[in-house]
Design a protein around this nucleic acid. Structure first.
Lengths: 115, 115
DNA sequence: TGCGTATATAATCATATGCTTATATGATGA
DNA sequence: TCATCATATAAGCATATGATTATATACGCA
């Protein structure tokens, strides 16, 4: 392991429980390469806006993601400065890239690009 | 990542959900260095035997652990040949060693040693 | 100022989870 | 063969989880 910082089991299990949901895990993998706003997730996951919003809240509550308002949209990004990011990163490294979702969004003209 | 084998998100999230429980996560970390039998886990976690047994069953159901009967005891070991063991391993690498539990067991004369 | 869009939150509900107690199974040893 | 120990399984229950619907909030624009 690159760091000598171990994560206490209580904390680690909470983190893994959050990642142990397909929607949230996919969100994290996506966010590793692309910031996304809520309506993009709604489109990608074909889920209701409140459902998406609630998943994001859980990720935000433990600061795994950052939110930033840009005009009418709120963009989410992964928090690479999180104390436990090394663990997150090594988990995500085992998962296939989710770029297909983003490409599909773009081809449907649903990708939101700011600035 | 050492391997090019990615784990599908559905499968990965199921795995992580199983690890997202403090008891099971600790069990896995312990098993990485020590095979244990059920009664040892009962002692270590101060939990009822059925509770322990049910956690082990979940780990066994997806073959994260192997069981082997030795006389009256059933010993559990980690399944390092599991297709997804590389993911498990990289998660466990971030967790502190749980040898203290084993040492305590030994000092109380509760460690079960076969053969 | 008022409307439409994007997002968050609250209330509710069905299902999943993890424990408990009770019981079954299987091995050991007198 | 019977008693005991180790373990598994089943049933029941309280709590957690993830969705839905309804509503509130915040921004952009006419």
């Amino acid at each position: 392991m690159s760091s000598k910082e171990y994560i206490e089991l209580q904390r680690a299990s909470q983190l893994l429980k959050l990642l142990g949901d397909k929607t949230r895990l996919t969100m994290m993998k996506l966010l590793q390469t692309h910031d996304c706003c809520v309506c993009e997730f709604v489109e990608i996951f074909k889920m209701s806006q409140p459902a998406i919003s609630q998943h994001l809240r859980k990720l935000r509550d433990i600061e795994l993601v950052n939110e930033e308002r840009k005009g009418q949209w709120i963009f989410y990004s992964i928090n690479k400065k999180h104390e436990d990011y090394p663990l997150i990163q090594s988990v995500l490294a085992h998962l296939p890239l989710q770029d297909k979702s983003i490409v599909e969004l773009e081809s449907q003209g649903l990708r939101i690009l700011c600035e």
